[in-house]
Each structure stands twice: as structure tokens, then as C-alpha cells.
Simulated scan of single mutants.
Amino acid sequence: MALGSYETYQLAHIATYIAERLGRHHRSGRGRDGRAARAEAVRDIAGAATALGNATGRSIPERDLPRTLDTDTFTAAQQLLATGPRSADVVALAGTGQTGFAVVGHVPGLGAVGARAESRDIADALHAHFLTRPSSELAPWAVTRDPQRVPTLPQQVDLAAFVEHLDPIRDDDRAVARNLRGHDRRTDAAIRGRFAGVDLDAPAVVTPPATPSDPAPRRVARPRRPAAPKVNGRAPGIHRPPGQSAAAPTVPTTIAGP
């Protein structure tokens, strides 16, 4: 199977970042903490949407942002794959009366995964993503019971402040940062500071998980150091006068005066 290009992986990572933040938004509770969590999620989605627009070369309306498939759409798309026009596991949703494309799949240990995207390039990127990334990275794409709605995003977002919340260790966050470079000087400065020492242009590395058939590494036994020989029942280097036992010396309980 041919892997997608580096740009393809960038699209998939940014889309996964958006899906993960959409999940946070929908799981947020009530009260002050819930409102704060939703505000942070909206900020992150807006920042990542800007990165996705930069990566694709076109502005993407919030209603067209990639998001996780719900169960009903997943089932309908799966039926189209079995009975109608299809392209691998990417299928046009026109047959269901909807727009865009669905990416449907199954990941061992995770179950049904699916994504909805309005553009074919993002759908193809997620198709390759589903086939090559570890299951732990695909959790945001686990099929949901109800359709996901994208919240209303602000017209402007402080991208420099948004960058400060990105995690340099995560591939998704690095892809977002890479595609925000060149937006403005302040954002570029924030990226240089937050991702200092990180090569944002490094190619993606896919490490396949180990299979049960792989032989377990052998444990190398270290040779034991031989015990030191004893002389007349005593360890060498310890000499006592004749008649003195090995017991610890006694300490007097009183102090004699002058």
C-alpha cells in the first residue's frame, strides 16, 4: 500500500486535532467549568481551522470542517460501499442525500471509526490516516451515537495565544503549528518560542505495532562475581587478636570522672 504524501499527513493530523477538540466541546459539562471548557475548545477549533485553510489553500466554512461520523451516517455509508459506487473506503454521501464524503473503517481495539469531510483531499488524507496510524491516535474518530455539530466560531482568533496551548510532543499539534507559519509575525514568533528545537518539517514516521509472533527478547544473564575466599573462617583483611570474638565491642554506660 502506498502511503500518502507529507502534505496528506498534515491534513489528516490537523483534521484529527479538530475532531478531538469537537469531542471535548460535546463532552463538556454544565456550570462554570463546562463553559470554560467549551470556550477553550472553540478557541482551539478556530485556530486549527485557520491552519487547515492554510494547508488546503482555501478558506473552509465551519459547517464544512471535518468531524466524526455518527452511527446512522456510518451505517448508510457502509451500505453504499457494499452496494453502490465506492472508492476503497471513501464514499460520496450523495447517495444518502447529503453532501461531502464519508471515510468508514474498523480499527482493532477501537471498533468502528468514521469521518465526514466536504472535500475529497481531506477524505483521502483521513483514509490513509486510518490505515497507518496507531489506534490510540484514532480515538477521536470513534463513531458517535449522535451527529456532531460544529460550534459557532469567532470571526477572529488570537493565533499567537492559541499556539501557546499546542503540545510540541503531539504530531497533530505540530501539524497545526506548521501550517500556521507565515500567517503573521506575532504568530511566527509564538511558534518559534513554543516549538524551539522541534523540526516542524521533519517527515512523518509510522512505526508498526509489534505482532504477537515477534520473538521475545532474550534476557542476558550477567555472570556473578565469585565470593572472596575466607582464611581460617574469616574474610581476608580482617585480623583479630587471639581469643577475641567477632562480637561488637561493648560501650560503657557510665562516664568515669577525674
Rank of each mutant, 00 (worst) to 15 (best):
G4M: 13
Y6S: 12
L11H: 14
A12F: 07
A12L: 06
H13I: 01
I14V: 13
A19V: 05
E20I: 01
R24G: 06
H25D: 10
H26C: 01
R27K: 11
G29Y: 00
G29T: 08
R30G: 15
G31Q: 04
G31R: 00
G34A: 12
R35I: 07
R35P: 03
I45H: 06
A46N: 02
A49M: 03
L52H: 04
T56W: 01
S59I: 07
R63I: 10
P66Q: 07
T68I: 07
D70W: 05
T71P: 00
D72C: 00
T73V: 13
T73P: 11
A77Y: 08
A77V: 01
Q79N: 10
P85C: 01
S87E: 14
A88Y: 03
V90N: 04
G97W: 12
A102I: 06
V104T: 15
L110H: 09
L110M: 08
R116A: 03
E118P: 02
S119D: 15
A123I: 08
A125P: 04
A125C: 07
H129V: 00
R133C: 00
L138V: 11
W141H: 15
R149M: 06
V150M: 11
V150E: 07
L159Q: 10
I169C: 02
D171P: 04
V176E: 02
A177F: 00
A177E: 04
N179F: 10
L180H: 03
R181K: 11
R181N: 05
R186T: 13
D188I: 08
A189F: 00
A190W: 05
A196P: 00
D199S: 12
V206E: 13
T207Y: 11
P208C: 04
A210S: 14
R218Y: 08
V220P: 01
P226I: 11
K230M: 14
N232M: 09
A235W: 13
G237A: 08
I238M: 06
H239T: 13
H239V: 14
G243P: 10
S245R: 14
S245E: 10
S245D: 15
A246R: 12
A246G: 15
P252Y: 02
T254F: 00
P258N: 11
